[in-house]
């Protein structure tokens, strides 16, 4: 359905925006390396089913590969800035202070409690959903601490948040048309969108209505 495709496309757009801008400008200011590392972890644990070769469709398989590849490439590019632009890189690391273990630990526990089957694949899948819902936190934390963000960062976060928001009508659609209700995805998806809601409001006020982007 349309919401799902638009959601996937905005997800792809967010990564492309990030990739292209970092590649072109060699700048990493405002981008959280920790959030990006968490996304690599999210994609690698969620798309483990690629290894079972029970592929759903060409689209599904290709997108999974693209997402894993692009998220790894982002890390490579950020690491490249370490040499190209060491001052900005150090500044980013210095401000990227939210500790990953406080996110990964609880997500692992939640995956052990909430899962469809106690198998490695299903546990990893559940873990990836929980982790994805909070993976943006180091980035948002960094934003709220600095109070300012480049337009790259804001467009990136907006496209990323839009993707999860679009998945909500997709689930409603699928509930009525396919009688499908995937509780774990829906719950973590709602959680993730909720974390973005504050950001969306500020984005709307500042970027859509003009001028710069500043957090209170």
């Amino acid at each position: 359905n349309i919401f799902r495709i638009l959601g996937d496309l905005s997800h792809l757009a967010s990564i492309v925006i990030l990739l292209r801008t970092v590649q072109k400008t060699q700048r990493v200011d405002g981008i959280s390396l920790k959030t990006q590392i968490l996304y690599v972890l999210v994609f690698c644990t969620r798309y483990l089913d690629l290894l079972t070769f029970r592929w759903k469709s060409v689209y599904n398989t290709l997108m999974k590969m693209v997402f894993i590849g692009a998220s790894v490439r982002v890390i490579q590019l950020i690491q490249g800035c370490k040499i190209q632009n060491p001052v900005a890189y150090k500044d980013m690391i210095f401000r990227d202070t939210l500790q990953i273990k406080y996110l990964v630990g609880p997500c692992a526990v939640l995956a052990l409690i909430f899962n469809y089957k106690f198998t490695l694949l299903e546990l990893c899948w559940s873990f990836s959903l929980w982790l994805e819902s909070v993976a943006i936190l180091p980035q948002l934390f960094m934003l709220s601490r600095s109070g300012k963000a480049s337009t790259l960062t804001t467009h990136y976060i907006f496209a990323l948040g839009l993707y999860r928001a679009l998945y909500i009508p997709n689930w409603i659609w699928r509930y009525y048309s396919e009688d499908r209700l995937e509780k774990l995805s829906v719950f973590t998806g709602l959680l993730q969108t909720a974390l973005y809601s504050d950001f969306f409001y500020i984005y709307y006020k500042k970027v859509v209505k003009g001028a710069g982007f500043e957090l209170p």
Partner: peptide
């Protein structure tokens, strides 16, 4: 319990 729903979303 396993709901039998395939993980077909990204």
């Amino acid at each position: 319990a396993h709901t039998g729903i395939e993980h077909d979303e990204l």
